[in-house]
Write a protein that binds this DNA or RNA. Structure first.
Length: 568
RNA sequence: CGGGGUGUGGCUUAGCUUGGUUAGAGCGCUACGUUCGGGACGUAGAGGUCGGUGGUUCGAAUCCACUCACCCCGACCA
C-alpha cells in the first residue's frame, strides 16, 4: 500500500480523554475513532490489526477441531426466559422491541442461542462431542466503559461452546481449549498468566482466566513466588490464620462503652486493640428474603463471591441500615455474633476459637471484649469467606504471594447442564437413555488482544506491534521520494516485496523526513527500511527493527535481509 | 447509580475569577514558493451556533438555573 493512497489519520497531540497508553496510541496512530462512550469505529489500519488477531484465533480454533458458525446478533427474549437470564441479566443487556412488540436483546453472549440450536439438531451421542464457535460483535451496555478498547460496550468476541456426553468429555474439551488459548496468546506475542477464577453467573465451580499483566488492568491476580499457583482475587483461597494473637480462651466477656465508634479503625485508635483481634460482623441479605451474618477479622474483608458460592445463591446484597437495625437490634457499627437470633452465622476460618476478640454488642454504643468463638457463640458454618491479603501465604505451598493487576483476555468455563436442562438440549446415549448435554464455554476478547499488545509493546514514540498483529510488516521510507535515485530504489524494493506476498507500505508522500519518521514510529510497523542520503552516497540502506536495533545493509542484500527478519 | 472533573474550529488550548470592540494562539487543513535524515520555513487563505436550553443584563464564552455529552475513582465482565 502506498501511504499517499491510504487513509492514515495520525494525531500529533494526545486527545485529552485518553489516559491509558493503548487508548492514547490507538487514537494517535489512527487505528480507531470513538463515536460515543464505549463505541469505536475501526479505521483501516486498526481493522487490519484486528483481522490479524482474528485469523490467529480462527486458525488455532480450527486446529482444535472447533467449527465456526454465526448466530444472529438479535436474540428473542423467549430463549432468555427459558434459561431464567431475562430476569437475571441486568441493564447490561440491551433490550428492545420489534414492530410486532416482541422483545429482543442485542446479544451480550450466546449460550441460549447455541444451546437452542443444539437442542434442535443433536439427537444422538454419535453427534458428540462437538465444539462450535463464532467471532463477532457483542453488545453489553456496561455500567462504565473505560480505558478505550479495554472495556467497550460494543466489542468483538470469539465465543466457543463445547457439547459433550459426560463430565469426562467436558474435561477433555476444556483441556483442549486451555491448550488452544495458550497457543493463541503466545502467537499474538502477548505476556499472559493463567489463573483460577470465579465463574460467577456462568455457573460451575471454577474456571480459568487468561490475564495479561498490566497496570491498567481491572483484575487483580495473586501469584506465588515459588510454585505455579495463580488465582484471581475473587477465587484465591485463604489458609486459616496461623498468626497467634494476644488474649486467651478463658477471658471473660466485658461490655465497653464505645459511643459513636463504629469502624475497626476508630476502635483501634481509641482502644489500642489491634484490628486483627476484632471481629467484623456484616449482615447480608440473600435471595431477597433471608439474612446471614458474616464474620471476618477486623483486618480482613468479606469476599461476596466466596459467600455466594458457599451459600449457593446468586443474589447477595449488603443489608440496609434499617434491615441491620431490625435484625441485630442495634444501629450499623455495633453488630456482633452474640445474641443474634434466627439468622445464620457464617464465620471465616481465620477466626480462631482459642482466641478472644472484640466485637459489637448488638447494642447502641457498646462493644464486647474477651469474646471467645466457640465458647461464647457458635457459627453455623465456618469457612473461607474473605479476600486474600498480601500478608497471606500461598494456599498451595505456603510461600510468599504477590498481587498484580491484569487485563482479562480470555475466560474458559465449565457450564455443565446449566443451559442444556432448561433449553432441553438432550441426547440419546448408547444405553438408549436420554440425558442433558454437558457444556463448556470459552471466550476471547479480540479487541483486547490489540489493546494489550499495545499496552505491553510501546515506547515514547508510539506503538511497537508484535509482528503477528502488525497491520503491515514492512514500511519503506525514502527520505525524499522526489529524489529519482531514492524513488527508483524504493519502488524496486516495494515491488519485489509485493511479489513475495509481504504486507508492505511505502511512504511516497510529499512530507518532510521528520514527519515520515514520526508516523513510522507511531504506527509501529515492525520493520522500517530507510533510504536516504547514505544510500545516494554509499549505497547503504538502514533497516530498523521497531523498538530495537538498526542495521546498515548494503544495497544488494536488502530484500533477503527483510525476508529473513520476517521469518523469525 | 454515588463521588470527582471537563466541554471554546479536526487536535491541544488562552480568555471565564472582576460581563463591554471583529473570541485569540499553536498544530493540522488549502494554495503558491523555498525545503527534504528526525512533526521545516515564508506568504496568502478557509474553518467557530464558545455542548444545549432558559434566565439576569443595555450587553453573556464569562453570572444564575436546568439539561446533555464525555473522562476519571467505586459495584459489571471478554
Amino acid at each position: 500500500m502506498r501511504l499517499s493512497k491510504s487513509f492514515i489519520n495520525t494525531l500529533r497531540e494526545t486527545p485529552k480523554d485518553a489516559i491509558t497508553p493503548s487508548h492514547q496510541l490507538m487514537l494517535r496512530a489512527g487505528l480507531v475513532r470513538q463515536s460515543a462512550s464505549g463505541l469505536y469505529t475501526y479505521l483501516p489500519f486498526g481493522l487490519r490489526a484486528i483481522q490479524k488477531a482474528i485469523n490467529i484465533v480462527r486458525e488455532e480454533m480450527d486446529k482444535a477441531d472447533a467449527l465456526e458458525l454465526s448466530l444472529s446478533i438479535l436474540q428473542p427474549a423467549s430463549l432468555w426466559k427459558k434459561s431464567g437470564r431475562w430476569e437475571q441479566y441486568g441493564k447490561e443487556m440491551m433490550r428492545l422491541q420489534d414492530r410486532k412488540d416482541n422483545f429482543l436483546c442485542i446479544g451480550p453472549t450466546h449460550e441460549e442461542m447455541i444451546t437452542d440450536l443444539i437442542s434442535q439438531t443433536v439427537r444422538s451421542y454419535k453427534q458428540l462431542p462437538i465444539t462450535l464457535y463464532q467471532i463477532k460483535s457483542k453488545f453489553r451496555d456496561e455500567i462504565r466503559p473505560r480505558f478505550g478498547m479495554i472495556r467497550c460496550r460494543e466489542f468483538t468476541m470469539k465465543d466457543a461452546y463445547s457439547f459433550d456426553v459426560d463430565e469426562q468429555g467436558l474435561e477433555e474439551s476444556y483441556q483442549k481449549m486451555y491448550e488452544t488459548y495458550k497457543k493463541i496468546f503466545s502467537r499474538c506475542g502477548l505476556d499472559f498468566e493463567i489463573v483460577e477464577a470465579d465463574p460467577g453467573l456462568m455457573g460451575g465451580n471454577f474456571s480459568h482466566e487468561f490475564i495479561a499483566p498490566s497496570q491498567n488492568g481491572e483484575d487483580t491476580i495473586i501469584k506465588c513466588a515459588k510454585c505455579s499457583y495463580r488465582a484471581n482475587l475473587e477465587m484465591a483461597e485463604c489458609l486459616p490464620a496461623k498468626v497467634s494473637v494476644a488474649g486467651g480462651k478463658n477471658e471473660e466477656i466485658r461490655e465497653l462503652n464505645t459511643p459513636g465508634i463504629k469502624t475497626v479503625e476508630e476502635l483501634n485508635k481509641s482502644l489500642k486493640i489491634p484490628v486483627s483481634e476484632m471481629i467484623k460482623t456484616l449482615i447480608f441479605e440473600i435471595d431477597n428474603k433471608k439474612f446471614v451474618a458474616a464474620l471476618v477479622r477486623g483486618d480482613h474483608e468479606v469476599n461476596p463471591a466466596k459467600l455466594k458460592r458457599l451459600l449457593a445463591t446468586n443474589i447477595l446484597e449488603m443489608a440496609s441500615a434499617e434491615q441491620i437495625e431490625k435484625v441485630t437490634g442495634a444501629p450499623v457499627g455495633f453488630s456482633g455474633p452474640i445474641g443474634l437470633k434466627e439468622i445464620k452465622i457464617v464465620c471465616d476460618s481465620s477466626i480462631l476459637s482459642e482466641q478472644a476478640y472484640l466485637c459489637g454488642a448488638n447494642k447502641k454504643d457498646k462493644h464486647l471484649t474477651g469474646v471467645n468463638p466457640g465458647k461464647d457463640f457458635s457459627a453455623d458454618i465456618t469457612a473461607d469467606i474473605r479476600y486474600i491479603i498480601e500478608e497471606d501465604s500461598c494456599p498451595k505451598c505456603g510461600d510468599e504471594i504477590s498481587f498484580t493487576k491484569g487485563i482479562e483476555l480470555g475466560h474458559i468455563f465449565k457450564l455443565g447442564t446449566k443451559y442444556s436442562v432448561p433449553l432441553q438440549a438432550k441426547f440419546i446415549g448408547k444405553d438408549n437413555k436420554e440425558n442433558p448435554i454437558i457444556m463448556g464455554c470459552y471466550g476471547i476478547g479480540i479487541d483486547r488482544i490489540i489493546a494489550v499488545a499495545i499496552e505491553q509493546n510501546h515506547d515514547k514514540d508510539g506503538v511497537i506491534f508484535p509482528t503477528a498483529l502488525a497491520p503491515y510488516q514492512v514500511l519503506i521510507l525514502p527520505t525524499n521520494y522526489k529524489d529519482e535515485i531514492l524513488k527508483k530504489k524504493a519502488d524496486e524494493i516495494y515491488n519485489t516485496l509485493i511479489e513475495s506476498s509481504v504486507e508492505v507500505l511505502i511512504d511516497d508522500r510529499d512530507e518532510t523526513t521528520g514527519v515520515k519518521f514520526k508516523d513510522a514510529h507511531l504506527l509501529g510497523i515492525p520493520l522500517i527500511v530507510v533510504l536516504g542520503r547514505n544510500f545516494i552516497e554509499k549505497g547503504e540502506i538502514e533497516l530498523e527493527v521497531r523498538g530495537k536495533e538498526k542495521e546498515i545493509i548494503k544495497e544488494k542484500g536488502i530484500v533477503n535481509k527483510i525476508l529473513a527478519h520476517l521469518k523469525t
